[in-house]
């Protein structure tokens, strides 16, 4: 009796779910982080249906393999993620659970951005006493516009491979993007000359590529070890060093707790700055980079 009831309800539910499911026309893209959604949108535009697994308010290291993500991964034709162990805590599980052959490692629909650029901060010693380090190197490559260009080239190539019918359009879009992006890089480089060599304090070592590009000088990190939340003893130890050679700003990502940064700011008088670690929903990469740089430049005034 009960079984029959349950069965009937399940069948009803399934049919309902299918009905409520809109028809998807474009290439189904599963982007792990917002930057890849933005980039895919620049390069594929109307030919893609992009789902972004995380927002820029979420720490991409610590996402849970939620049922909704499994459901999205199940249907994806292209997966665009950072790699270099950034998503190690959730992506392998999503891939295994999805039952989706298109996006498994090694398939054309498995696009890992860090596979196509050189990585900074490659550890010489792999030991967890040094914190939660990434063996392959620092994964946050999206903060370097030059590396982004390289990834764009490869991603466009992947789009063409998966959807050859629109290849000429993808080529055109890449050309447009490249022109625009190179131009932007020039402008940004000119505008940020004054930031060169400026000392900054960061919360976590996730700004490495931006620092490298802008020539910022990281003088202290709030986390005692990567992935270990700031402790009061570590913060106290930073004060002395910062008194001797003060930094311009304490930078933290918008998904990080601001308590430690505020505390240190109070003690040292160095201003804090919350930066969006990734583009917001529907924000273009250009707009986001502009926002970051404007915020950094504003401090100089």
């Amino acid at each position: 009796m009960l079984n029959k009831y349950v069965k009937r309800n399940i069948i009803l539910l399934i049919s309902l779910l299918f009905l409520s499911n809109p028809l998807y026309a474009g290439l189904q893209v599963f982007a792990c982080e917002p930057e890849w959604a933005s980039l895919a949108n620049e390069l594929g535009g109307e030919h893609l249906d992009i789902y972004t697994a995380t927002t820029n308010q979420q720490d991409p290291h610590h996402i849970q393999a939620r049922p909704s993500l499994v459901a999205k991964a199940r249907r994806a034709e292209l997966l665009v993620c950072t790699g270099a162990e950034l998503e190690v805590g959730w992506l392998p599980l999503l891939l295994r659970k999805s039952g989706n052959p298109n996006i498994q490692a090694g398939q054309a629909g498995y696009f890992i951005a860090t596979d196509y650029v050189s990585l900074l901060d490659q550890p010489i010693v792999l030991d967890r006493s040094l914190g939660d380090i990434h063996a392959a190197g620092n994964p946050h490559v999206h903060l370097d516009p030059v590396r982004l260009q390289q990834i764009a080239n490869k991603l466009s190539h992947t789009l063409t491979k998966l959807d050859p019918a629109n290849s000429s359009d993808y080529e055109k879009k890449l050309e447009l993007f490249t022109q625009h992006w190179q131009n932007m890089i020039l402008q940004w480089t000119e505008r940020t000359q004054s930031l060169k060599g400026k000392p900054i304090v960061v919360y976590h070592k996730n700004w490495t590529y931006l620092q490298h590009w802008l020539g910022l000088n990281q003088v202290a990190v709030l986390e005692p070890k990567p992935g270990i939340p700031p402790t009061s003893s570590h913060l106290s130890s930073l004060i002395l060093g910062l008194e001797k050679s003060p930094a311009q700003v304490i930078v933290y990502a918008n998904y990080q707790d601001n308590k430690a940064a505020n505390w240190l700011s109070k003690k040292t008088g160095i201003p804090t700055l919350e930066l969006a670690f990734s583009p917001a929903k529907d924000e273009t990469l250009t707009h986001w980079f502009d926002r970051l740089l404007n915020q950094l430049l504003k401090l100089q005034e």
Binding site: L13, L17, V70, A71, K97, G99
Partner: peptide, 13 residues
């Protein structure tokens, strides 16, 4: 054997 339906809502049988 497990099956995930191609739906927006996660459904597994």
């Amino acid at each position: 054997i497990n099956y995930i339906a191609p739906t927006d809502t996660f459904l597994q049988l």
